[in-house]
């Protein structure tokens, strides 16, 4: 049986790395007595896979993991048992059973939606944003295994807009590419945005970044991984109104 589970990583655990989080969840699965399947071989590993990782320092209400079980268990029971043995700040939100033949979350997910809260006292942020988005080329240098390469990240910003503000802060939402093929880190986006306004990122304007959800393509629609679920049709709250 294969479960896709949506979970939250909150403020109290925002500094733990993806590797730490994986280890923490593996151990929670054992504490909860979940019948997790293991890989074969000398060093058997639990068959748990994850959606694209969240950067250290960010919070999220839209993380996903994909757990293979050796025997059946209702998604509700899974969440209940896990929530009884998790450290504060990590919470299972919802689980669904999905068809075992689906590819990995990592390969299916293409986009992630973030809420970015930025201290911008004195910065004409609307104008900065407009100028930034009007560029057709925003290039960065990525360092990878095959050396350096120049990447245009503009096509990876699908939406970036201000949704709320007060005297000191603006709240933006950003729909960005995420996943195995191409992805843009929202932290880097903020850095580039501020840089375009001539602001050197310092402790004055460190953003709070929160992931709201992740999406994959189904036909011509964007759905969340939960909507892959067998008994969870679209049209529910999770489906959201996020357009292409």
């Amino acid at each position: 049986m294969r479960l896709v589970v949506k979970y939250a990583k909150q403020d109290r655990v925002k500094y733990i790395s993806h590797l730490d989080l994986m280890r923490t969840l593996h151990r929670a699965l054992r504490r909860a007595g979940i019948p997790v399947a293991f890989s074969q071989g000398y060093n058997p590993q639990p068959r748990v896979a994850f959606a694209p990782p969240l950067s250290v320092g960010m919070t999220s209400q839209g993380e996903y993991m994909d757990v293979m079980l050796t025997s059946g268990m209702s998604p509700q029971e899974f969440c209940q048992r896990m929530n009884g043995v998790l450290p504060q700040g990590i919470a299972m939100l919802k689980a669904v059973a999905i068809d075992e033949s689906f590819p990995s979350l990592m390969s299916m997910i293409e986009r992630a939606l973030y809420r970015i809260s930025l201290n911008t006292s004195g910065l004409p942020i609307e104008g900065v944003l407009k100028d930034f988005l009007s560029r057709s080329d925003i290039t960065i240098t990525k360092r990878g295994k095959k050396g350096e390469r120049i990447v245009n990240i503009r096509p990876m910003i699908h939406r970036l807009e201000i949704v709320d503000r007060d005297e000191q802060k603006v709240i933006m939402e950003a729909m960005l590419s995420a996943g195995g093929r191409e992805s843009l880190n929202p932290g880097q986006l903020v850095h580039l945005l501020l840089e375009s306004a001539g602001v050197v990122e310092g402790s004055c304007c460190l953003p709070d970044i929160h992931r709201l959800d992740m999406f994959l393509r189904k036909g011509n629609r964007w759905i969340t991984p939960l909507e892959l679920g067998e008994d969870d049709g679209c049209g529910q709250a999770d489906c959201g109104g996020y357009s292409l």
Binding site: R12, V13, I16, L86, P87, Q88, S203
Partner: peptide
């Protein structure tokens, strides 16, 4: 929170582990 953003391995100073 502000200083934890700036240090290496902030988890060292965070606490909140399971069974704490």
């Amino acid at each position: 929170d502000e200083i934890l953003r700036q240090v290496t391995k902030p988890v060292r100073y965070m606490g909140n582990e399971y069974n704490m």
